[in-house]
Deep mutational scan, measured.
Amino acid sequence: KMTIRVKGKELARRIAKEMKDRNLKVEIHEHGDEVILEIE
């Protein structure tokens, strides 16, 4: 399990899509400006 902190929703969406393309499970937690992606 891996956690990534990202500034900006646009970048977070791009990373999430990339991870889904690799068949990984992604959970997205938004905290205002910061987005936390949990990847399994």
Results as ranks from 00 to 15, higher is better:
T3P: 06
A12V: 03
G8W: 06
K1E: 05
E38I: 15
D21F: 02
A12Y: 00
K20E: 12
I36M: 06
K9I: 15
H31R: 13
M19L: 14
K17H: 07
E27P: 00
A16N: 01
E27H: 11
K20M: 14
E40W: 15
K7Y: 05
G8M: 05
A12E: 03
V26S: 00
L24C: 12
I15H: 00
L37Y: 02
I36D: 03
E10Y: 04
E40K: 10
L24T: 03
E40Y: 15
V35Q: 05
I36R: 04
M19Y: 12
E10Q: 07
E34Q: 10
H29T: 13
I15M: 07
I15K: 00
T3F: 10
H31T: 11
E27F: 11
A12S: 02
L24W: 10
R5Y: 06
E30M: 13
K25Y: 08
G8T: 13
R14F: 04
R5K: 12
I4F: 02
G32Q: 07
E10T: 04
K17D: 11
K9N: 08
E10I: 04
K9L: 15
R13S: 12
A16E: 08
K7R: 11
K25T: 10
R5T: 14
E18C: 15
E27A: 10
A12N: 00
G8K: 06
H29D: 04
I28Y: 06
D33N: 08
K17F: 01
I36V: 11
T3N: 08
R13Q: 14
M2L: 13
G8H: 09
D33A: 06
N23T: 02
K1P: 09
K17L: 08
V26C: 03
R22W: 06
G32V: 05
K1Y: 08
E18Q: 10
V26M: 03
K17E: 12
V35A: 04
V35F: 15
R14T: 10
A12M: 02
L37M: 05
I28K: 02
M2I: 15
K17P: 01
H29Y: 14
L24F: 12
E27M: 13
R14S: 09
K20N: 11
I28T: 04
T3V: 15
E34G: 04
E38M: 13
V6G: 02
H29N: 06
G8A: 05
K25N: 11
V26P: 01
L11P: 04
G32R: 06
L24K: 04
M19Q: 02
I15D: 01
H31W: 14
D33Y: 06
L37S: 01
A12C: 03
K20T: 13
E38K: 09
M2H: 14
T3Q: 12
I28D: 00
H29M: 11
I28Q: 04
K1V: 05
L24S: 02
